[in-house]
Design a protein around this nucleic acid. Sequence first.
DNA 1: CGCAATTAAGTTGCGCACAACTCAATGGCG
DNA 2: CGCCATTGAGTTGTGCGCAACTTAATTGCG
Lengths: 158, 158
Amino acid sequence: MTTLPDRPDAELLRLDQQICFSLNAASRAFGGVYRVLLKDLGLTYPQYLVMLVLWEQGELPVKRIGEHLRLDSGTLSPLLKRLEAAGLVRRERSPEDERSVTVSLTEDGAALRERAGQVPRRLLTATGLPVDDLAELRALLDRVTVALDAAVPDLTEG
Amino acid sequence: MTTLPDRPDAELLRLDQQICFSLNAASRAFGGVYRVLLKDLGLTYPQYLVMLVLWEQGELPVKRIGEHLRLDSGTLSPLLKRLEAAGLVRRERSPEDERSVTVSLTEDGAALRERAGQVPRRLLTATGLPVDDLAELRALLDRVTVALDAAVPDLTEG
DNA sequence: CGCAATTAAGTTGCGCACAACTCAATGGCG
DNA sequence: CGCCATTGAGTTGTGCGCAACTTAATTGCG
């Protein structure tokens, strides 16, 4: 067990602040850099994430996209509509299951992949961290995410 | 210099995905836990951050709150209005500088601090990480944030 | 002094995240 | 078979984040 050491509440409060402050700040700093990098692609950061999934997977029902990105239809439906309006994706009811909507890339959407090719390298450079540190950061974030997700049900009931 | 090693674009693209995916996921996972923990305080997570600043600093102009949290008036003005409507803060034009609005805690706002006392410990427990790892996570996040902020101007022009 | 530049707060508009809901299609069980 | 619970997508409403803008007060410089 990784129980919390005995520390005064004041210290915990300070640490808590630093963590939530830091995560918030980092998240928004990433957003700011992505906003600049994606500007001439005409994509927002969440739209870019959806495009990444589609570039890798080819075509997917909305449900699957949501599972990859932890987003529900309330977020994805309007976002996909905007991507469709921009001519980057198609949305079609699945013939096998009329409840499902399959999202696929248009020619323009697939072509955008080339223009987005520089984004990852520029982003990694902008972080200023060596690749090893980034890998460690990712590992810590993933561990926290798993633990937090597992904790929510307990907190909701208990 | 921490230059990027020579790696194929495909690998960079994958790493990039993992980092942005991970940060996004972690950020929203934190948000989910905070939402549960703050529910009976009647606060959202950003509102909680503002209250933390006020509990620590006593009273501040909107500008200073924004500097602590990296938020502008476009975000803070409506948020502070909601806190005022909830009876937690007061907003008053500063007599010395009529442009500035001083935000201070009401009695209810100050009293809420006690009820929020359990939040940090419960959150730290929910992360499932020992305090040392959290400190390291925070350090990595802060380094990334500084680097990303510094990179934005270059990206915007160059 | 007087006027232009700057500063603080607020407003507007857009997109995202999420809860709560509707609606239609599907699946399962008596 | 028929009915009801479940599932997938979409809609509505609220709040946050940010860019671009407005307004009013202040500063500073000729």
